[in-house]
Design a protein around this nucleic acid. Sequence first.
DNA 1: GATGAATGAGCGTTCATTCAT
DNA 2: GATGAATGAACGCTCATTCAT
Lengths: 191, 191, 191, 191
Amino acid sequence: MCKKDKRTDIMQAAMELLAEQGFHGAPMAQIAERAGVGAGTIYRYFENRDVLITELYSEIYERVHRVIVSAHPADRPIRERFFHIMKGFIAHYKDHPLEYRYIEQFHNSPYGLQHRKEKLLNVTGDYDFIHNLFEEGKKQQVIKDLPIAMVFNLAFAPIIWSIRDHHTGFLDLDDELAEVVVRSCWDSLKI
Amino acid sequence: MCKKDKRTDIMQAAMELLAEQGFHGAPMAQIAERAGVGAGTIYRYFENRDVLITELYSEIYERVHRVIVSAHPADRPIRERFFHIMKGFIAHYKDHPLEYRYIEQFHNSPYGLQHRKEKLLNVTGDYDFIHNLFEEGKKQQVIKDLPIAMVFNLAFAPIIWSIRDHHTGFLDLDDELAEVVVRSCWDSLKI
Amino acid sequence: MCKKDKRTDIMQAAMELLAEQGFHGAPMAQIAERAGVGAGTIYRYFENRDVLITELYSEIYERVHRVIVSAHPADRPIRERFFHIMKGFIAHYKDHPLEYRYIEQFHNSPYGLQHRKEKLLNVTGDYDFIHNLFEEGKKQQVIKDLPIAMVFNLAFAPIIWSIRDHHTGFLDLDDELAEVVVRSCWDSLKI
Amino acid sequence: MCKKDKRTDIMQAAMELLAEQGFHGAPMAQIAERAGVGAGTIYRYFENRDVLITELYSEIYERVHRVIVSAHPADRPIRERFFHIMKGFIAHYKDHPLEYRYIEQFHNSPYGLQHRKEKLLNVTGDYDFIHNLFEEGKKQQVIKDLPIAMVFNLAFAPIIWSIRDHHTGFLDLDDELAEVVVRSCWDSLKI
DNA sequence: GATGAATGAGCGTTCATTCAT
DNA sequence: GATGAATGAACGCTCATTCAT
């Protein structure tokens, strides 16, 4: 029951409720209740609602990042590294629907825009890993020489939408289909 | 000063505010104020907030649909028809940033999920136009034989994200880059 | 379509809606719609909502009064005249449920208290008919020498409640039971 | 300063305002103000306005019920028990004008009809006390064999109206007159 | 005279945040 | 540190009344 525990409980409760009910369907009191703490307690760990939401985003982002970075075949060709990343990405979010929903909600909220703006001004190390892969791919002339934002869109957009459709039941994103969508994204990127 | 005028004012004000501030940042009173009408007046034209939001979506959706359908080269090959549609789509939303933002907000809200579900159960004529193009493409074996949802994702996701980035300043989606992204999407779809 | 017609239409619509839905469940717009007139038109005939409600009360009160007065056996004993009045009263309100409901609503609203107060200050001719019967009964020593308000309560309260129960289905106030309740009220009044 | 205090304050304020101004003349904000609490505080104790009104009714009903039941001469004749109940009833509501007004308002509102319906379907223990007295009176052939609703009307209607007149100043219901009205009601009931 | 579109004050209710305990 | 009762501004919506046509 150290300080970390309560903070973790709050974040877990917040993720569940915000993911399931949307950013506007989860009052602080409900988050507190699910976390098993008093409503006021949340404010000892997070200055306010916005800070909770933003820090939770960073936390969840870290998780997928760790998955992607781990066991990364850094010495293999760009194409292989791309496939490794994207399949890890899909696998992680198929296994963690709440995390997926949370990230999606975040990106499609006013927070998301703010977040992207800050990224643009000060590219932190987080993104750099994938960022660098794409830059290297451009240099090696295996992927198209496009603005980095466009590369990200071609690489991630269809995959992220497909994960969403998987969780909402519009699509059964099994291993075979996952392979296909990653290959298709690669087709759109490669020279 | 006919009846249509006030309804139009309200829809325009609603689009601006909902697009700019998100669905939860635009109270009815503010919409009324921007439209230059009393708060109660909105309810003469729209039963409630949900109806306003949904009807506004239909209206805006109609606009892009008209653009896409008009001058469609129905007798040309799938590939050419695809390029025509996608470039019309991009051009329209580059010219109408508020419409773009509104549609995006709508899709990423509970309304959007509801909307997709209804589409899935009862595909109305609206979507069928593009839907049929893709089905025909699959039959002619020029595009991959994938679930229709996946085809839509490959075709639209990178383009839609790029339009967003254009409006937020992350990307300058000029004609050349538009051509590239459409071609890339086609690369991901074609066999 | 003379002036009287529209006024009558409005009063009829108001009675129906106010009786059926309560004084707070019938907006002016709805009354206007049912009456087949514009919302503003009501205000040409009645200064405001309160006036409409009050004048409608007077009108409906007049109707039962006319029934009671007509064919009144003025030369018969008090007891017989009492039975004649009360049975006419019951018959009228059994036949006119909306009028009954309206009168009831009126009496149990702030209007009702106001109305009673005005009656107390200036006893108009309306009530005098029954009022005089009771006073004469007291003089002849056939009914108890009680304050007139008390006499009214003993005479009317059980009957009015029974009519209410008849209309709400709690009681079947057929002719036999009507006879019984009138006799019972008389039992409570007579010396 | 225990939890009960604030709940009691709110109920007292609600009773005063609803009794004095009618069910439609007492906004929640005004109740809160009179109770000396914030508007939102009411909702910690009562789910919504309807619940507040209904619970307040139960509370007030309980009070008169306790008075009537206490010191009840259960082994005395029906007539004597009737007099005991009715005089206790009158005494209580003479002493508590707001409670009287509240109960009256409640009965003459949509809540009251609902309440009567529920009573009719499932006669709970509350009413049974008086109910049983009347049924026993019918069995012993000391009161008329009438539908129970009619018995209640004969027994209570003139008394309740007289209490109302007492509070509005139309009648001075002193002990002597109270005795008379109870006796008169008994006269209307007895065989 | 008649209309009905327009109004805006007022309602019941929610919830992020505070603070006395 | 932890609590949760209390707050009150803000919301979506209603409807009696007005007034330009």
